[in-house]
Simulated scan of single mutants.
Amino acid sequence: MLLWINGPFGGGKTQTAHEIHRRLAGSVICDPEHLGFGLHRMLPPAQRGDFQDLVSWRQGVVEVLDLALTGHDGVVIAPMTVTDPRCFAETVGRLRELGHDVRHFTLLAERGTVLKRLRERGLGHLLPNAAGKNSGSRRESWAVQRLDHCLERLREPEFAEHLWTDRTSVPKTADRIAVLAGLTLRPHTGGPLRTRLRQAGVGMRHIRFD
């Protein structure tokens, strides 16, 4: 089974994916963003647009996830924002055509909620002085520019199942996905502080400067 976790940038996809992975034995995370970042590095900076526009990214995502799903016994988790119907058909749709059990979920929240999460994501708001004035915020700025488009597109029926997360914690969102997908997660352990530290660690590991 593939759990594709969609949603706006800063919507909680990565945190939810890691929460499920932590509590679901045998699961793995296969992040399609890594392929996109690799393709970006092969291009001069001036040519680095949206890597989802590259046929090589869409085909590569299908090939790699198909390989993972075929060769791995456990659940595969892919946290990735996809808002373009054609791109959705050429990735999620194509994997379904290949016979894989793909469960797609879109995490949604009000605009103000997502903006707050973007400001708090990882330690990006603490890093400008250490990494260059614009390094820590470049990706967040791009995410803000795309936010309204993402929220509008992802509300469409084709991107169901929709899960609203404004008043739901990451562990509870993971629980909801598990129930809808027919999976059983280990109980969530640790109090609010431990959960916060764990999520901060996930955020730090996903801060990028290129």
Results as ranks from 00 to 15, higher is better:
residue 72 H to E: 02
residue 145 Q to D: 15
residue 193 L to K: 15
residue 49 G to H: 10
residue 8 P to L: 13
residue 53 D to P: 04
residue 131 A to M: 13
residue 110 E to M: 07
residue 5 I to M: 05
residue 66 D to P: 08
residue 70 T to Q: 14
residue 205 R to S: 13
residue 23 R to G: 00
residue 58 R to G: 12
residue 167 R to K: 11
residue 195 T to N: 11
residue 119 R to M: 12
residue 198 R to G: 15
residue 54 L to W: 14
residue 30 C to F: 07
residue 175 D to Y: 01
residue 35 L to P: 00
residue 36 G to I: 09
residue 11 G to S: 10
residue 76 V to G: 04
residue 155 R to I: 02
residue 133 K to E: 15
residue 76 V to C: 10
residue 106 T to Y: 02
residue 128 P to L: 08
residue 55 V to W: 09
residue 84 D to V: 06
residue 131 A to Y: 14
residue 98 L to C: 07
residue 136 G to C: 06
residue 138 R to C: 06
residue 64 V to Q: 11
residue 169 S to F: 00
residue 138 R to Y: 09
residue 170 V to D: 03
residue 138 R to I: 07
residue 173 T to K: 00
residue 71 G to V: 10
residue 71 G to M: 12
residue 155 R to H: 14
residue 143 A to N: 09
residue 188 H to N: 08
residue 60 G to E: 06
residue 58 R to A: 06
residue 206 H to K: 11
residue 37 F to C: 06
residue 126 L to C: 06
residue 127 L to D: 02
residue 108 L to P: 00
residue 203 G to T: 04
residue 54 L to M: 14
residue 14 T to C: 01
residue 143 A to S: 12
residue 205 R to A: 12
residue 188 H to L: 03
residue 193 L to M: 13
residue 97 E to W: 02
residue 161 E to M: 08
residue 106 T to P: 01
residue 81 T to C: 11
residue 22 R to M: 03
residue 88 F to C: 05
residue 22 R to K: 12
residue 172 K to M: 13
residue 65 L to N: 05
residue 204 M to Y: 11
residue 60 G to Q: 07
residue 144 V to M: 12
residue 31 D to K: 01
residue 11 G to T: 05
residue 61 V to D: 07
residue 86 R to G: 12
residue 50 D to K: 04
residue 55 V to C: 05
residue 44 P to K: 04
residue 89 A to S: 13
residue 106 T to C: 05
residue 80 M to T: 08
residue 81 T to Q: 04
residue 200 A to F: 10
residue 196 R to V: 05
residue 13 K to M: 08
residue 98 L to Q: 13
